[in-house]
Amino acid sequence: MGGHLSYEEGKKVVVKGLIILAIVTIAEVIVALLGKGYLIKGFHLPVWLMYFLMISMSLYKAYFIVYDFMHMRYEVPGLVKSVLMPTLLLTWALIAFFTEGKTWKEWRARSKDTNLYISNIPVEKQEKSSLHNEIHPGVESTTPGQHAPVEVKDAQNESHGASDNKTDAHSEPKEVKHAEEKSH
């Protein structure tokens, strides 16, 4: 309803909102630049502090927009809860998804041809595998664990097959992969 503030008060909130959001945004940008060493040469904020500051300032902005601009402050508690509480369901989603992302990275790092994932210079496809060897001659020796990658690869392939249920579609690439590894 929003009629809980007088017109003049409402106008003040608007000006206040503009100033607050502008200041917070500038503060965020300064933190980002400080954190990555753009403002003071050679000075980096600790990463955790930078992330903490940026995320909490963004959450504050979000809170301000919802509560003052969208007038959530003046709604009845039931409505507030019915809209805001469901977003808490995302907490576990964030944890689970990001943990998964990290896991993929770790497993790929254990796999032999790590560079497949970071490099994608569009060269002719036939040259692809040889290119990696040229660019990263020392990679094989520095990658820890020669046996682990093969196991991981197999596990991944199997699980894909299991979930897709078109196991035949996957068995073929697996063979190809082995052949490729032998050729090193």
């Binding site: 995302l90 990001f98 998964e100 992302g101 990275k105 790929r108 790590t114 994932y117 970071i118």
Partner: peptide, 12 residues
């Protein structure tokens, strides 16, 4: 979340 997941899964 998809963005975050893919970013977490990239080495760089």
């Amino acid at each position: 979340i998809a963005y975050g997941t893919l970013r977490f899964s990239s080495p760089a």
